[in-house]
Design a binder for these strands. Structure first.
Lengths: 216, 216, 216, 216
DNA sequence: AATGAATGAGCCTTCATTCAT
DNA sequence: GATGAATGAAGGCTCATTCAT
């Protein structure tokens, strides 16, 4: 995920592109800067990728793939509790978004792609996101009574993912909203635990007394 | 929020800027296009705002203010149930993000600001977001037992807001993930109801049996 | 036709463009060089003409117009002999192509346009060339017996114009074919006289014994 | 003249180059396109010809040589009439320029060389054009009385060649000047006949009454 | 002998900004 | 106060050429 001397020129360009695209956006990034950081020739982008746009798509997909591989879901066996699976899923999700080196630019790059969806988005969903989403749905199915509709499971899944991604998307707001100490206390451990507790509580209660209806 | 003949040139430019900045981003937007849509002279931006950057900040803040005014929180009296307040808060929040004219470009503009925080972000938090956040915290305080820590209330607030914003930030992914019919079924009404149910369930259960501990 | 301080920037660019396009062709000419010779900014071409292509068309038409105005046909009255008119036409034609300042680049520019026809060609024919061609046809009509067909008049006109243009189009060959002294002897006067004599002789003989048929 | 499987790589490149140079000019042609059409490697041009410029010279000369060989002058014996020789010469000349496959690109390539003379031009004149010109001069000498000066013979030769080349060089103008039907009627046969008739008529009359003097 | 990966110079065009009016 | 003509910096991309194989 970081540039080393062993990477090929093409790989170095992809990584450099991901970092700079994340920092400055597509239009704010110059091919010249990418090539300079990658230690490549100015013509290398067109040579390897055709044009800037295709390099961008490549960089986005590459970044996401790397991040997923860096923090894989643990291997579960038949005995693993569904509650554990959910906790694992959430912890992995939060970790992918917020921990370790590469977190910042990977996250920013994804945000920019969300703010300005390109061909990369569809490809991302098909190859990476949908399978993960199906895993989460399966976990929720195990945790819910049988009569819960697929629609509800989906909304629940969205509620869980939404809580995780919030710390990703709203980061600039959170930074301004909290004091430095408060902000720093939002570590991966605490966030995962809270989101798991909160979601499990909701799932259990809703499963017991399905559709009580909101006070309205 | 839309350009009328009664607006001043400066106002027309701010609105036009918001729309185009939302659509194409800061670097993808040209001063020429803004002025053309606003029916103003090419030099008007520099004349009224100094430069493109300051116009952007103005446009972001303006857009957010307008949106907040367009969908205000209802007036509550002393008898309003806390549950109702939470439902109202969530419904208003979702509506601001997803309904009616101006929703798209206002939301997109905010996303871009999140992906690329500028001076506008800090100003936004201070003037608009923090007060709303305090209101939510107060509602949650009413709904929780007294011993619940502020940290937990904050995390709960984030969980609620995160669920709402998810449909905003992850929209491109949702579109690719769901079928057209499924996507269309995610209307404001259904989303608000689900988020309220889900969150209230979690709050009540956690309040009763605090820190059940995640299975891990 | 030459750049003076009194010309506007746009005019200076058009003239400079004509000269350099003539010398190096469309693809061999850079906008930078044009602007530099015209003493204009690099962005001036796009500002005044939209793009390089449209500047080229403008330059070609402008050059041709200038050249025509510089060497107009003499004013004929009702008493002017048709033979005189033909001599005048030919002399003017040759002069436009070969005499005085501007001859070289104007001619070269036209040749390039012929070798690589663009929108300029059609415009040129409609606005300048066709009227001249009609004048020549009228002269030939006066010189021929009535039964000569329009087709034949046209071919005769082409024969005359072809002789004139030869010294224009085949100039590089002529230079290599003749000695320096022989080449210099091909002045406007001698060429006009020869072409007039040659063509008048042909017209008269063909008119007397129409379609004798070539020995074949 | 067309690319076959038996041609060597070098030959295929020369032919492909001639075609593309003719179509787009020297600067408008890329070495890549040439090599692609020739089915050769991108480095082949530099390998076989040194650089693009020398390939161009080769292509021009090659094209002209091929065209001459494709339409050779007929073999004349001692009894052949001079008038017949002139008719043959003109017919061959027109045919080289306007008929059959390869006519278009060969002609266009020559025009470009005339508009932008390179080393190819001098070589062409020495090896191909001058001998043909001498043949024409000899025919004209046979057709004229002895006292006609060489200068006059040369001008007459130019008049004849000029008429032939006109349909080549001024083609874009002719297309715009005439209707489609009129343009199509200008076939090789009709043009040759007209030019022969016109020129023979002029030569005979001028030979009988030398220097009648133009009315001026 | 022939290849093709890689390069660096340079081109057209666009854009935010300014300044004289 | 407001305009729009004009500018210079810089960006994406193309191309002939080279060099290691």
């Amino acid at each position: 995920m970081s540039i080393t001397e062993h990477d090929t020129t093409k790989e170095r360009i992809t990584t450099a592109a991901g970092e700079i695209f994340a920092e400055r956006g597509f239009d704010g990034t110059t091919v010249r800067d990418i090539c300079q950081r990658a230690g490549a020739n100015i013509a290398a982008v067109n040579y390897y990728f055709g044009d800037k746009q295709r390099l961008y798509v490549e960089a986005v997909c590459q970044a996401h793939r790397w991040r997923m591989e860096q923090f894989p879901l643990p291997a579960w066996d038949g005995n693993t509790l569904s509650e554990t699976k959910l906790a694992d899923f959430i912890a992995t999700f939060v970790r992918r978004v917020r921990s370790g080196p590469g977190a910042t630019w990977h996250s920013k790059l994804m945000m920019r792609e969300m703010a300005n969806p390109t061909a990369a988005c569809a490809e991302l969903v098909q190859s990476s996101i949908r399978p993960q989403f199906e895993i989460l749905l399966q976990i929720l199915r195990e945790l819910s009574s049988e009569e819960v509709a697929l629609d509800t499971l989906r909304l629940t899944a969205f509620s869980i993912v939404g809580q995780c991604l919030f710390y990703h998307f709203a980061d600039p707001v959170i930074r301004n909203l909290l004091s430095d100490d408060e902000y720093k206390s939002l570590d991966v451990e605490q966030l995962s635990t809270h989101i798991t507790d909160f979601s499990l509580a909701a799932i259990r209660r809703l499963s017991r007394a399905p559709r009580a209806g909101a006070a309205r």
